[in-house]
Amino acid sequence: MSKNVALAADGNAAALKAENKKSFWKQVKNQKTLILLSIPFVVYVIIFCYVPLVGWIMAFQNYKPAKGLLNSEFVGLDKFKRLFGVAPFPKNDVFLGVIRNTLAMGLINLVLGTVCAIAFAILLSEFRSRGGKKVIQTISYLPHFLSWVIVAGIVFDVLSMENGMLNKLLVGLGIVDKGVNWLAEPKYFWWIVAFTNLWKETGWNSIIYLAAITSINPDLYEAASIDGAGRLSRIWHITLPGLKPTILILLIMNVGNVLNAGFDIQYLLGNGLVQRYSQTIDIYVLKYGISQGDYSIGTAAGIFKSLVSIILIFLANRTAKAMGEEHLF
């Protein structure tokens, strides 16, 4: 929805930048239809995204549901101190480990996800047969519509020691002589998550890049081939530069999402042996906030996550700006 507003406003972009403060009301008048149209969405965002922020008070209280927000006892930053295990609370590095896992899995997902989606989109766009392209595209989207529970089941089956496809393949090829217990080894966990994500989302994520490729002016390709550019150099000199703005905007937005590295897959595939590498912030919030009944510490962890996300977005945006590239704000 906000996108529509943004696109609609596109028309007077140049004019808008030149305007100064005096003509603010004039602008409002000019765009009153647009502003009216956007009001419902702004209200929506306020109600569902800003009003609930009142709940953040919980993080500074020893919150008890029966007493409510108004009557719970305020404890200052105690919950945050407990979270990080700093004095006067017992030393505890669980949450630090959780942050490391979340960042690591988030970054792996971000890098692998972006690179593969772009590569896949380019490969698809170079596909000659229309029919074949459609079929491949459809097949590659399908896993996106599976729920994580089903995906986790498939992963379990593929990695199983007894009848797992992967172990059978490796043993058959003589690479290992005994099945590997993939899910019991902490060092594999992040990669299992990353590849599962890839399998599920690459097709879906490539849609937006595919759309961007379609919008590149075909004349450019024609001109390039007349100049003697081969397929690879056309991709390198035309497709990729044409995609750059899209890639950067999506990267910046996704950097803010790095800490949303996931919940479902880690929760479903995790077990005691790998828990030190499998727990993400969301799982931590569920475990301590909901399961252990300490809503305050769960909220504190959530706030921490939001703060880091905001910082990451600003950093990414700054970097893009400094490089003179497309940026958000």
Partner: peptide
């Protein structure tokens, strides 16, 4: 708009109270 969207995604965490 984009920033609001991003915030919206994050605010989810604190919203359970």
């Amino acid at each position: 708009a984009a920033f609001t969207l991003a915030l919206a995604m994050m605010a989810g965490m604190g919203a359970c109270g």
